[in-house]
Nucleic acid binder design. Structure first.
Lengths: 159, 159
DNA sequence: TATGAATAGTCAAAGTAAGTCAAACGGAGG
DNA sequence: CCTCCGTTTGACTTACTTTGACTATTCATA
């Protein structure tokens, strides 16, 4: 029985997995229009399906430029950080690659916004301030150390 | 940025991002013209984005030669950080020297224990992981960027 | 010193978009 | 049938943005 709410849920979930990005940005009216339903139906789906217990957070903004943003929380942050340390960080890393990783850690709530901004600034070419290819090596070393720090601090009891 | 106000905000922030001059001077009409919007839009952005709670003050003057001046607030308790950035960090720094500075920052409550541990680990020889004398240069650059970050984050309560 | 040009400020209306809530709906189990 | 409970809807509310008409200051100069 394909209930509307289930279809909308599936649609959003597919958006969340298709692009291998843990974030989706939609406009309530647009989505409601696509499914030919009342806009408040979208709120119902969000309230019943995209809850924290199910591993999602929802943020939104009203008015011009309004949006609804759904983020899939990485429930096993430890394993993600471990994987990062062991497999994803080599001996060199570009600023772009580092930014991508940090953004993803932030979006999946592995790190806070403060941590995100702080680490991003430290991994910039400007902050490291030595020429290639040394800076790429330093960056890889630093982001690994950051991941280790986060792994340690987040695996303490009571987050 | 989907919304005009956000674009204007970002534009102004980018003008402010120069670390050693936390001030920007603009003309309202000129800025409005650049963004093709009503001049009062600028006031709206200032009123909603560049508030004291967010760490800014705005002064202005009407009439010929009028202007709008936005200043990023530096709180008094951060004078030590400012002094650090401006005077105490050179182009090279040993691990010991960095540790001394960090400990002092921690003891004077300029940084939290988490920040202390995190930054200490990043400034170790091991974390930087490139040979002397490059690592001393990287360390000086990094600790300067850290100080700038702390200065900025602590001067805006409620982000 | 009076006046006009050049600025910036204020405020309310219109525009855009999401949130709330209660009533109506409808299918499954009794 | 009837009731229960999750679903669906729509009227109303709240939040944020954009614009424009009108006001207030400041400067230059007659």
């Amino acid at each position: 029985m394909a209930v509307l709410s289930d279809s909308i849920e599936q649609f959003l979930i597919s958006l969340l997995s298709d692009e291998d990005s843990p974030v989706v940005l939609v406009q309530r009216n647009e989505l409601a229009n696509y499914f030919r339903c009342a806009p408040s139906q979208i709120n119902y789906v969000l309230a019943t399906r995209f809850t924290v217990e199910r591993g999602y957070t929802v943020e939104s903004r009203r008015g011009g430029g309004g949006y609804i943003r759904i983020v899939k929380i990485n429930l096993d942050r430890n394993s993600y950080l471990k994987d990062l340390i062991e497999n994803s960080i080599g001996t060199e890393m570009s600023q772009d690659a580092a930014n991508t990783i940090l953004l993803r850690l932030f979006e999946t709530k592995c790190i806070s916004q403060d941590e995100y901004r702080f680490s991003q600034s430290l991994l910039s070419d400007k902050a490291i301030g030595v020429p290639s290819p040394i800076k790429e090596r330093v960056r890889a070393n630093l982001i690994r150390q950051m991941a280790i720090n986060w792994l340690q601090s987040k695996s303490m009891p009571q987050t």
